[in-house]
Amino acid sequence: MSFLARTHPSSRRNPMKRTIPALAASALAVCLLAGCGGTSSADDAGGGSAAGKKIVMLLNDQFDPYYLTLVAGAEAEAKKQGFDFSWQAPSTLDVASQTQLLQSVAARKPDGIIMSALDAKAMIAPMKQVMAQGIPIITVDADVADPSARLATVTSDGEAAGRLAAQTMDKLLGGKGKVAFEGYTPGTSSTDARLKGWQEGLKQTGLEYVAERYDATDLTTIAGTVSAVLKRYPDLAGIFTNWTNPTLGAAQAVQAAGRSDKVKIVGFDASPDEVSLLKRGLVAALIIQKPGDMGSRAVSDLAAYLKDGTKPQSVSLDAVVATQENINDPAVSAYFYKAGKK
């Protein structure tokens, strides 16, 4: 059945090219089916409290700590509200498979859908169709271009996070010095937004932007690129990376070159590896988005709407900066990504 094949993980947000085999996919699909298919078909009566209502979340990746944290936030809030909650991810990163997934989920008549839109334009029509069936949609993490295709959106502002990275670097370097960028190959909206914000933010600083390099996901390749950048600029003072792997690869390369005390790395995301590097002073700062908050916010907005029809406000959450100074501050460490437990 096509549904089984569609639960492959993959990521629009984080650049991870993965092929998950049918075997693993089916195993996961079985879990997911069990998780979401157990309840009786929805009654159209509606109204009243949220208890027992069924909401489904559609994401783009099953394994990425960022999404897992988002799911954890949503799940916790759903439990509090008494929702019957489940989530799914499509096999391939294309509009067709997300559309199919959306339609098959809608066919089971959930009371609400929370989803990350794979394409800002192409998903408008299928989402409108689902809305027209009386199933409310809240977009999370990635929105569509037409506000009428969903009830509301909860996103986190990648460009603002990129600008925050530039400000953080400026502060770390005392306003002067050469900086470089190493990140994921352009063409992915989330990492692109962070790069764009970083480029704009740098203009407000006195930092000299000398190199901008991209690689895919391989740590060895990333480390090789950063090694060469370090070679080319012996006086390099800072490196910004826009997701987990470049942060790890850059830290390794800087360490191998024996320049950990001279080159400040501002990383992105807060996977346990990165937090460990921050603890050990091999990374100077981490820019962290708030996926958990996004998840819980989307669920509570949906709850309010299902209860009494309150139309939620769209929001864009900002990012936080973790440094060695504030690493133990619960207001910051609360945002460290969960090590994957489902």
């Binding site: 092929t19 998950i20 693993a24 394994f63 700590p65």
Partner: peptide, 13 residues
């Protein structure tokens, strides 16, 4: 093999 590694680790480092 990659799938099993992903399942085992939940895709986490």
């Amino acid at each position: 093999v990659l799938g099993l590694a992903s399942v085992w680790t939940n895709g986490q480092n």
